[in-house]
Each structure stands twice: as C-alpha cells, then as structure tokens.
Amino acid sequence: MSSRYGFHPLALGVRFVLELVALACFGLWAWVTASASLRYVSVVAVPLVVAVLWGVFATPDDASRSGGAVIATPGPLRFLLELAVFFGGAAALYAAGFRALAVVLAGVLSVYHLLSWDRVLWLLRH
C-alpha cells in the first residue's frame, strides 16, 4: 500500500510553494543575467514561459493537478519536465550567484521528491 503522501493536500501545498520558488528563481536569474535594457522584460518573460510550459504539458488523470491536460503528456516525460522546472530553478539560483541557497533548495527538492515517491511511481507508470 502506498503512502499517498505525494497526493496529500499538505504535500500538494508544499509542492505549490516549491513551484512558486522555482519560478522566482528563474526570475531572479533573468534579472541578474539580462542586460539593463531587457531586465524588466526578462524578469517577467522567463518565469512566464516556464509557467506556461509547466501548465500546458500534463499527464491525464494526475490527481495532484486538475486531472485535465491541454497537451496530454506521458508520465515519464512529465516527470522529466517537473525535474527540469524544480531543479532548473535551483540551477538558475546557483547561476545567479546564490550558491548556498541553491544547494539548500536542491536538498529540499530532493527530500520532497523522496517523500512523494508514490506520485513519482504513478507518473512513471502512466
């Protein structure tokens, strides 16, 4: 019997916060790396593009989301996308010069995904 932690409302709340943190990290990276003339555009555009890709590609019937999908995506591919967004946010934070925070975030993300093993397995099977 699975723990169902990955689908528990508390875990989904933590996941939502981690998603917002990842998007903020992409925005921070855009702010730090963009030229002064593009800074304000990129700080909005980069997280927006990530968020749209994040929301459009989904595995149908994923109980941790609405269950619907704009573009139906196999679970293993969705899991790779999730890893790219979450850990990409940590990498963006690292690239922006916040190395210690990036390492902490990567550790938190690793623990979250280990605790949500039931959802990870669900994705890999769908």
Rank of each mutant, 00 (worst) to 15 (best):
residue 52 V to C: 06
residue 52 V to T: 05
residue 52 V to M: 06
residue 52 V to G: 04
residue 55 G to V: 11
residue 56 V to Q: 10
residue 58 A to E: 11
residue 59 T to M: 13
residue 60 P to T: 14
residue 60 P to R: 09
residue 61 D to M: 08
residue 61 D to P: 07
residue 61 D to S: 15
residue 62 D to P: 07
residue 63 A to Q: 15
residue 64 S to D: 11
residue 64 S to Y: 08
residue 66 S to K: 10
residue 66 S to R: 14
residue 66 S to L: 14
residue 66 S to H: 14
residue 66 S to T: 15
residue 67 G to S: 10
residue 67 G to M: 13
residue 70 V to D: 07
residue 70 V to P: 04
residue 70 V to L: 15
residue 70 V to A: 15
residue 70 V to T: 15
residue 71 I to L: 14
residue 71 I to S: 02
residue 72 A to N: 05
residue 72 A to G: 09
residue 74 P to E: 03
residue 74 P to Y: 11
residue 74 P to L: 10
residue 76 P to C: 11
residue 76 P to W: 07
residue 79 F to D: 02
residue 79 F to Y: 06
residue 79 F to L: 14
residue 80 L to D: 03
residue 81 L to W: 12
residue 81 L to M: 13
residue 81 L to T: 12
residue 82 E to V: 05
residue 83 L to A: 10
residue 83 L to Y: 04
residue 83 L to K: 00
residue 84 A to R: 02
residue 86 F to K: 03
residue 87 F to K: 03
residue 87 F to N: 01
residue 87 F to S: 02
residue 87 F to P: 02
residue 88 G to C: 04
residue 89 G to W: 00
residue 89 G to T: 02
residue 90 A to N: 10
residue 91 A to L: 13
residue 91 A to G: 05
residue 92 A to N: 05
residue 94 Y to H: 06
residue 94 Y to A: 04
residue 94 Y to N: 06
residue 94 Y to E: 00
residue 95 A to P: 03
residue 95 A to Q: 05
residue 96 A to L: 00
residue 99 R to N: 06
residue 99 R to T: 12
residue 102 A to C: 11
residue 103 V to I: 14
residue 104 V to M: 12
residue 104 V to N: 08
residue 106 A to K: 08
residue 106 A to P: 09
residue 106 A to H: 08
residue 106 A to D: 02
residue 107 G to R: 03
residue 107 G to N: 10
residue 108 V to D: 07
residue 108 V to K: 01
residue 109 L to Q: 13
residue 109 L to K: 06
residue 110 S to Y: 06
residue 110 S to D: 02
residue 110 S to C: 12
